[in-house]
Design a protein around this nucleic acid. Structure first.
Length: 120
DNA sequence: CGCGTGACTCAGG
DNA sequence: TCCTGAGCCACGC
């Protein structure tokens, strides 16, 4: 019997699986959405240990500054960048990604717009 | 139960 | 902008 994963781990897996194509999220963001605002290192550990097993879109998870968390010339870096580009994510010359444009924004409940009131 | 190890993050210098 | 130190979290030994 293998030990059951913690709830945090389960949530992290589920959360990452929900990141939409063409969008990205940060370790910190995943951790917060999973209930632990300071569990970014845990997220990284989980990704490293079971991203393949759960077939997760690990490449959609970036560092808080919006850049790939691998050494610039590493195999992983190149692969991750290729996968993201294939989904339409563009990289700046310095290797950063425009988070304002690509970061996944989990929907909450949108009043969206305020209608001018017609009856007072 | 403590220790070491990470695909982390933030504050300083 | 790069390097450190400290804080944080999961997991295997």
């Amino acid at each position: 019997m293998k030990t059951a994963p913690t709830e945090f781990t389960t949530r992290v897996i589920a959360t990452i699986a929900k990141i939409p194509r063409g969008k990205v999220a940060t370790y910190k963001q995943i951790a917060a959405l999973s209930g632990k605002p300071h569990g970014s290192r845990g997220v990284a550990w989980i990704l490293n240990s079971s991203s393949q097993k759960h077939k997760l879109p690990w490449y959609r998870v970036l560092s808080s500054r919006g850049r790939i968390s691998f050494p610039l010339k590493s195999k992983h870096y190149v692969l991750q960048m290729a996968k993201l580009k294939r989904e339409g994510v563009r990289f700046k010359d310095n290797g950063d990604i425009d988070m304002a444009k690509y970061q996944w924004k989990k929907k909450v409940a949108k009043p969206a717009r305020l209608q001018p009131r017609m009856f007072s």
